[in-house]
Amino acid sequence: MMMLDRDATLADTAALVGLFEQVFDETFAHLYRPEDLQAFLEEHGAELWREQLQDPSFAIHVVEEAGLLAGYSKLGPLRLPVEPRAPAIELSQLYVAKAWHGSSVGRTLMDWTIAEARRRGARELYLSVYTDNPRARRFYGRYGFEEVGPYKFMVGEQADDDIILRLDL
């Protein structure tokens, strides 16, 4: 089966919501009270995805196989509490479904992310990663991301311990 990577469109909204919820659930659901998880997922529902897909300050790229989304990357305006030293952009999500872990999906998405950030004039790329997500931390480390500092990532009323990472482009 051949994988295809492409820019997301409005037609991908439902698939992106589904993949976002699936990956977040697979990776993090055990950490939260059901009401906090539900509030977070509702906050990141179809309406937000449609807005971001239509907003030129965001760029969303997908990898699919046989019409199924395997993963996506979402770039957008910097919202993390950092003082950039140069023009900056934020990688708000790079999600890969568990079935595609260990494949080239993550690498394909990160290569696109870095190229797109540069194309948009960014000289720094920021993201936050959950402290206890060693797989993601190793992945970003391979690309040269460096730790900037701690960050509280809110899921409902629960504050998670995240780490802000930066890559000089």
Rank of each mutant, 00 (worst) to 15 (best):
D55A: 13
G45F: 00
K74H: 13
Y72P: 00
A11F: 12
L109V: 06
G102P: 09
A29Y: 11
S103M: 10
H44N: 14
I89Y: 07
E124C: 05
A117R: 09
S128L: 00
E35C: 04
L19F: 05
R118V: 13
G67Q: 01
V17T: 06
L53G: 02
E116A: 08
K98H: 14
G76I: 04
R120P: 03
Q52W: 15
L125Y: 01
Y140P: 02
D36W: 08
L91P: 00
L75K: 06
V105I: 08
H30C: 13
Y95C: 08
R119V: 01
P34W: 10
F28Q: 02
R79I: 08
R119C: 00
A39Y: 10
L68R: 15
L127T: 02
P77A: 10
A39R: 11
E116M: 02
G45T: 03
S73L: 09
H101C: 08
T9D: 11
A99E: 15
R137H: 06
E116F: 05
A117V: 11
R119K: 14
F139V: 00
K74W: 12
R119H: 15
F20P: 00
L48N: 04
A15D: 05
L78I: 04
L19I: 07
A70C: 13
S128I: 03
V23R: 08
S57F: 10
D25C: 12
Q22W: 01
A8K: 05
F24D: 07
D25I: 09
F28P: 00
A59P: 03
R85M: 13
L69E: 06
G106A: 12
A136F: 04
V96M: 04
L80S: 01
A99V: 12
L78K: 03
Q38L: 14
V105A: 05
R123K: 15
Q22K: 12
R137F: 02
R135Y: 09
V63A: 10
H101F: 15
S73P: 05
R142T: 09
A14H: 11
R119N: 09
D25R: 14
E26N: 14
L78D: 01
R135M: 00
R79V: 09
I89D: 03
G102Y: 14
R50F: 06
W49A: 02
E90R: 03
M110G: 00
H30S: 14
A86M: 01
S57V: 10
G121Y: 12
G76R: 03
P77E: 06
P34R: 12
V82C: 04
G102T: 10
A122I: 03
P34S: 14
I114M: 07
L31P: 11
L94I: 13
L109F: 02
L19R: 06
L109G: 03
H44V: 05
Q38H: 13
Q22G: 03
E90K: 05
A8P: 07
H44E: 10
L31G: 13
G71M: 12
L78N: 04
R137G: 02
V129E: 02
P134T: 10
D111C: 08
A86R: 05
E42F: 15
A46W: 04
L109E: 01
F40A: 06
D132I: 04
